[in-house]
Amino acid sequence: MSNHAGFILAAYGVSFIALAILIGWIFVDQRTQRQALQELELRGVRRRSEAKTDGAS
């Protein structure tokens, strides 16, 4: 590595952090929506289209 190591590490570091936040946000969103769906299903709420389809995931 040359004397530019700081710039290279900063570029990889920022990219890693930003992508980790993006991936984390998508995972948290997934959990939130899944829990909300499960809670509604437990309460017996059904979508209008669900009677016609083969049980949406």
């Binding site: 992508l19 993006l22 991936i23 998508i26 969103d29 997934q30 929506q33 899944r34 909300a36 769906l37 509604l40 309460r43 709420v45 059904r46 979508r47 209008r48 949406a56």
Partner: peptide
């Protein structure tokens, strides 16, 4: 590939979100 993985998962989340909104409205 990372883009397509994240995009597909984000689309799945969005479909769930819309189902939750629709079901809350029905409720």
């Amino acid at each position: 590939l990372l883009f397509f993985t994240l995009h597909m998962q984000a689309m799945r989340n969005e479909i769930w979100r819309r189902r939750v909104v629709a079901m809350r409205r029905v409720a």
